[in-house]
Write a protein that binds this DNA or RNA. Structure first.
Lengths: 206, 206
DNA sequence: CATAAAAGTGAAAGTGAATTCACATACACT
DNA sequence: AGTGTATGTGAATTCACTTTCACTTTTATG
């Protein structure tokens, strides 16, 4: 006997929230229809009113995450100001995001996604690329403004940023939130920044 | 009718090899008894002559991997010579190892492991720690020898190295080996190295 | 060459999860 | 109030595994 009925739009959001929460807590292996529905307060078969199957549910979650992830970065990337500072802002913002939504890196890099369909792998890779592209653009502009050394490969900088953030997420997951390597990551990023600064600037400053 | 019979020790190795190969190709989600046994050339139930259950099989694989991973690094870490060069050797060695054995990072960071039993998570984390400890020690010795800046947090350097290597592995997995970010990783590492060098050294050189 | 232990086999039981379907009911709209 | 539709339910189905077990067959060894 149905207690309450909800508009499918809202219910979908609830279902995606529940799924992300499960991934955050226990990994995608623990995502199953009964656990999702239990959290939402409906019965497993009711899920199929809102999603064709589990695959489509995961796809929807990935799509929603994509929007949130890229929306955030594009706001900062578009800002004016010192490029090195902006890079650091993005770096810190995403460390924060990982802390708040531990399910996101887990979703993005989970095997469920990595070894889903061809399409899904592509979508995932396109998210990663779009993300890196934003970072590269900042580096390139910084180089035009003569603030960042021409020696720096924009893609390498983007790669480094993503790597550090991601590894914080992985270790957070691995240790169940016990060990937070964000300080190490920040410290590592500062080393990177040293490498960014233009030689001429250094000489002028010293 | 059994075609050939093998000593359990050899058969175990075969089984572990097959399992690692499956993980490399398709991720741990695709590890199942029939696929493993198919590759080895036996029947699923025969696996139980060699391992109590699937859990124990994965544990054994993890244990074997641990040995190989740490054995390699300790060889280099123990060597004499310029600490910055040694760090780079370790970095490059592990990029190579990932290329040769794409299953290893996948195993180490797969959810199957991360969300296995408490013990398994601990074992995994202890591998990571042992790995990082080796790197930290090199940095610390480098600082004593006045070759690496005291500003560098040893753990941050270890974290950075692991992050870069790991992300190469992840993207390799994600793109099915199509995209190899090792060059970006190497380039990023060079930026790090700039941060390592002692200020005094820089001033002397300039 | 006899034989016991180790390794392998195939069938079947047990499990848990995804999905389907016929049926029930809350809600919006008239 | 009456009605159609979207949402929810619970039982049943299907499926892919894992694991057990009684039975073979190989192989090493005395």
């Amino acid at each position: 006997m149905p207690r309450t009925r909800l508009d499918s739009g809202l219910r979908k959001e609830q279902i995606l929230d529940a799924t992300l929460a499960i991934i955050a807590e226990s990994g995608h292996l623990c995502v199953n229809t009964s656990e999702i529905s239990r959290r939402v307060g409906i019965v497993p078969s009711a899920l199929y009113r809102h999603f064709r199957d589990k695959e489509q549910l995961i796809d929807a979650l990935l799509e929603r995450t994509r929007g949130r992830l890229l929306g955030n970065i594009e706001t900062i990337a578009g800002r004016a100001g010192d490029p090195i500072r902006r890079l650091r802002q993005i770096f810190l913002l995403h460390l924060q995001m990982i802390r708040d939504n531990p399910g996101i890196p887990r979703l993005i890099f989970s095997d469920a996604v990595a070894f889903g369909t061809f399409q899904r792998k592509n979508k995932l890779f396109s998210i990663l690329n779009a993300y890196m592209k934003n970072i590269e653009d900042i580096v390139i502009r910084g180089q035009k403004e003569e603030k960042i050394s021409r020696d720096v490969l924009p893609r390498a900088a983007a790669f480094a940023l993503v790597s550090l953030v991601q590894n914080v997420g992985i270790i957070l997951n691995l240790t169940g939130g016990t060990i937070d390597m964000a300080p190490e990551a920040e410290s590592a990023w500062r080393l990177f920044e040293k490498g960014f600064i233009r030689e001429e600037n250094t000489r002028q400053e010293v």
